[in-house]
Every structure is written in C-alpha cells, then in structure tokens.
Design a protein around this nucleic acid. Structure first.
Lengths: 101, 101
DNA sequence: TTCGATATATCGTTGACCGATATATCTCGC
DNA sequence: GCGAGATATATCGGTCAACGATATATCGAA
C-alpha cells in the first residue's frame, strides 16, 4: 500500500467523509506537505470499495451538489492498523540503522 | 519513494554491498518478511545511480563471478535520512490517530 | 462577472514494481 | 562424477497505483 491509499484510510479513521473532505483532511493531516489529486482519489476510492476496506455511508444532496460519504469497514480498519504496524516497524529499523554512525 | 527503494538505500547505509548482498541484507533487515526480487533490484539500482543516490564502489571478480559493489553517495544518505523522517512523521500521525478510540 | 472554493468524475500516461526467465559458476551431498 | 541449490547479474513484459490534465456544475465573494 502506497502513501495516498494509506492517507485516505487514515482520513476515514475517525468518521465518514466525502471525497473532497478526504482531500482536505489528508492535506490537513500532513501539514500541507502531501497533496492527493482527484485522479488519485477517485480511483483509490473505487479500489478500496471493491476490496471491502471502505463502503458507502450515505449520499446527500447539499446545495444541489452531491456528497458521497464513505466509511471504513471493520476489515478496512484492520488493514489500516496492520499497515501502520508494518510501516512503524520499517521506520524503526531505519532509525536504528541510521543512528549507528 | 516506495518500500523496495527505501530498503535498498537502507541496506547500503552501513557499507558498500553488491546486488545480491543487498537482496540478502534487505531480507535479513526485515526479518524475512520483505523480499525484493532481482527484477526490482537491478532496475532500482540503475535508477538510483542515475539519480546520484548511489555509485559504483568497486568491481571485483571473485571465483570467476563478477561482483559489483555500490555505495551510498552523500546525497543518497541525505535522501535516506529525509525519507526516514517523512515516513516517521506519517507513521506517528497514524499511531496518534488510531489511539483515539 | 469573474475567480476561487466546493464536489465529483474520466482519461491517458508514466513508472516502479514484480514474476519469470536466462546465464554462469561454485559447493555440497550422494 | 552428477545433480541440486546457493551465488550473482541481467533482461523482458505485464500490471497497476499514482498522477496531471481536463471536464462539469454550483456557490459565495470580490
């Protein structure tokens, strides 16, 4: 799993969000350093839904503009936790290695 | 930068290694969980050399088999350190986020 | 009325990654 | 002496996530 997908799952970890909201949250989360474009987002959303990691929470029409909210599935949360542990282990390894000099 | 490339740089962080040695070190480092295939390795080596992140250290012929040793450049080490910090920040964020529940 | 933000969607391209395959030599066990 | 597996480098083609560009539509602010 690459960074954009990881960030999308992470953005959904506290509550359901719609696509654009995920974009904003990912930007906010990363302190503005990571930006996900729409081309990345909607493709990833489709893949994640097909994989059963996220699902449609609800669909709203607000001010004539549709908003499609997604939420993490239980499985999606599990995947996110595992991925976080995997990444944590790798980073820990790197820090340990780079400290020896 | 994706995991395989990150691991290759990390494997070279303590001393020069030849291609196959990088494969073994990456496997060792990750506790056997991450495996880099030759198709990934040699392509990545070429890219990293072109980017100036690694360079040829020496070439040996041992037992009739060639061994091509690569080493991190100063720039490559810098990139590795930055990438580690970037990954660390992201993982820290994820852990913090997942702890709230 | 023009711009930027909000909101979703598609399209084509790129490029890292990956499995498979190839070649060649050495060592170990039988 | 022979085969298997480890050592070592290399290429090739396919896949797929990511990405930039573009499109559509609405709203509020300047």
């Amino acid at each position: 799993m690459q960074d954009p997908t990881f960030l999308i799952l992470l953005a959904l970890s506290d509550r359901p969000r719609h696509g654009y909201g995920i974009l904003l949250e990912a930007k906010e989360l990363s302190g503005g350093t990571i930006r996900i474009g729409p081309g990345t987002l909607y493709g990833a959303l489709e893949r994640l839904e097909e994989a059963g990691h996220i699902e449609l929470d609800r669909e709203e029409i607000e001010d004539g503009r549709p908003r499609r909210y997604y939420r993490l599935t239980r499985r999606g949360r599990g995947v996110l936790v595992e991925e976080t542990q995997r990444r944590d282990a790798l980073v820990g390894l790197a820090k340990q290695r780079l400290a020896h000099r």
